[in-house]
Amino acid sequence: MDLQDYLAAVIFGAVIGIVARIVLPGRQNIGIILTVLIGMGAAVAGTWAADRWDIHSDKFLVVRGHSYDWLVIGVQVGIAVVGVAVAALLAKAFSTDDDDD
């Protein structure tokens, strides 16, 4: 992997994380860095899961010569939604704010 691949992974991870936050209802009190990290992890985990269980389609999103399978993207976003939900629940559970008064 070269620098361009890492940059693409960060950008794609950010997009997946942000899409997950949009799909997930309610407010999530987690920062943008954690959102990007969750998105990046979801991109890797979703790719692995799609390969492991042979989840592929014949529909592709092509960006600058790279092809992305729509079903794989769906798996990645699904994993990111779960990751954002878990992070938001943990952030709320360990929060020291007294907003409940």
Score class of each variant (00 low, 15 high):
101 D>N: 14
93 A>S: 13
10 V>I: 08
22 I>E: 12
98 D>G: 12
89 L>G: 15
7 L>K: 03
51 D>F: 12
94 F>W: 13
32 I>K: 09
39 G>V: 00
86 V>D: 07
77 V>N: 06
80 A>M: 11
76 Q>R: 11
26 G>N: 04
86 V>L: 14
89 L>D: 13
80 A>K: 02
23 V>R: 08
57 S>R: 05
38 I>Q: 00
48 W>E: 12
86 V>M: 09
54 D>F: 11
43 A>Y: 03
49 A>I: 13
44 V>K: 11
74 G>F: 08
47 T>H: 15
54 D>L: 11
97 D>F: 11
69 D>L: 05
27 R>Q: 13
44 V>H: 10
53 W>D: 06
46 G>C: 07
61 L>Q: 08
79 I>D: 03
85 A>Y: 09
11 I>P: 01
37 L>S: 08
83 G>L: 03
36 V>F: 00
13 G>F: 00
72 V>A: 13
2 D>Y: 02
61 L>A: 08
99 D>T: 14
41 G>F: 01
91 A>L: 06
92 K>I: 02
55 I>V: 14
31 G>W: 01
30 I>A: 03
17 G>D: 01
46 G>E: 03
28 Q>D: 07
74 G>I: 09
34 L>Y: 05
99 D>A: 15
86 V>P: 04
25 P>C: 06
46 G>L: 05
20 A>N: 02
74 G>Y: 04
72 V>I: 15
99 D>M: 10
43 A>G: 14
55 I>E: 05
52 R>S: 13
96 T>Q: 14
28 Q>W: 07
50 A>W: 01
17 G>F: 00
11 I>E: 01
52 R>F: 15
74 G>K: 06
53 W>E: 06
74 G>D: 07
9 A>E: 07
23 V>E: 10
59 K>S: 14
62 V>T: 15
20 A>C: 01
73 I>C: 07
28 Q>E: 09
73 I>H: 01
63 V>T: 11
22 I>Y: 10
62 V>L: 11
98 D>R: 15
101 D>Q: 13
58 D>Q: 15
45 A>M: 10
47 T>F: 08
75 V>Y: 10
13 G>I: 00
84 V>F: 02
97 D>G: 14
85 A>N: 11
41 G>Q: 03
14 A>E: 02
78 G>H: 09
96 T>K: 14
74 G>S: 13
43 A>I: 00
65 G>M: 07
28 Q>I: 05
64 R>H: 14
55 I>S: 04
15 V>L: 03
56 H>I: 09
7 L>G: 05
45 A>H: 02
42 A>P: 01
53 W>T: 06
15 V>I: 12
89 L>Y: 12
